[in-house]
Amino acid sequence: MTASLTLDAVSKRFRGAPTTAVSDVTLHVAAGSCTAVLGPSGSGKSTLLRLVAGLEAPDAGRVLIDGHDVAGVAAERRGVGMVFQKSLLFPHLSVLDNVAFSARVRGESRRTARSRAAEFLEMVQLRGFGTRRVDELSGGQEQRVAIARALAAEPAVLLLDEPFSALDPALRADMHALLDELRLTVGPTILLVTHDRDEASRVADRIAVLDGGVLQHESDIAGAYRAPTSVRVAELMGARNLVPGVIAGGVHTSALGEIPVPDAAVSGPAVLIVRQEDVQVRRSAEAPTSQHPLAGPGRPGPRADGAGRAPLAVETVTPAPAQEARWSGTVESARASGARMDLTVRVTPTVLLHAEVTAAGAPRLGERVDLTIPTGTAHVVAG
């Protein structure tokens, strides 16, 4: 069983609170899809889930499941399952009876409920764990049981409130893989709350960015990263190159020079956004005598054959067409992030650019490098 979920101009303010927890949020989650609600602590994410679950009532707006307004429908009758950050398993029941609980509440016999519960335990890869006590489980196993218990209620909509945040990275990766498998076998509609953009992009089809109780952005994964609707959304999605300037005629002008952004939807004051993953880096053949903010006629870039320039590790850098933006600069910081290296490069007296490259063979502090922003990777928002 699966159903669409729609929030229609939903608002909620708690008594005595100085601000609204959720303000005029409209969001649609297609049947069988997964949307991740991403935002910082206190942004209203959990409140949104509680409104869908029926644990809170909205002050305004509607919650619709499969097109039906569920106002006044009790939480246990909404066809919604919920998994929290803590598993909240019943300590006095075995693992099998925890999962069988909802079926027993529906009036099914113990034998039938347990038989069905065993199927859900197998689904979450816990076959044979039914007789164990809750205190015999690891954290990851507890969350698997919590998910099995939620699925055993046969919900049309599954709500996940940061259920993997307390797990170590390896266990989280396992849970993400498990969620993929459950989506293939069961196909529930999922609304996931998280503060981790990597998790959101790993498990969801779409990302909704919530901040201050307001829905700031909603799109597919690529749109959230590549075309954020505001500077705040870009920051929450991890963008580090945010350059103020002015855009006119599809060209952004700033301390970096003129950069073409032909698909820009704004004009006037605007912030240029370039993902650090998109900035291409090569060691400079020699220290340049001047900055060249934009390659073009009379401003040649690297030779087409790349002679005299050593690419960084396994980075593939295609010689840039004339309209691509290029700079030379000095590495001011280099910070390892797993197998990658985050570089900060001074390209003008007032502007730093951030780039992400493979750690092996990355440039050192003080080294001169050439940077390229490939055509079509720059984005602008009003600013």
Rank of each mutant, 00 (worst) to 15 (best):
D205M: 09
S267E: 14
T189D: 02
G212Y: 05
G249T: 12
I190F: 06
L272F: 10
G245L: 07
S267V: 15
L184H: 11
P244F: 11
L171Q: 00
R197A: 13
V231C: 09
T289M: 10
A287V: 15
E277G: 02
V261N: 03
L178S: 06
A264W: 06
A227W: 04
R303Y: 13
A304F: 08
L256I: 10
R283P: 05
V266F: 07
T289D: 13
G301K: 04
A234F: 07
S290F: 08
P262S: 04
T194E: 01
G238M: 14
V261P: 03
A255I: 05
L256M: 10
S284R: 09
A224L: 06
L178W: 07
V214F: 02
R299M: 12
N241E: 11
A224G: 12
L184T: 12
L192Y: 15
L182W: 04
D278N: 14
A234G: 08
H292R: 12
V243P: 00
G249R: 08
D196V: 04
T229A: 15
E277V: 13
S219I: 04
S201H: 08
G296F: 04
A200H: 01
V231Y: 02
S219V: 04
A227P: 00
R172E: 00
D278R: 12
A287N: 13
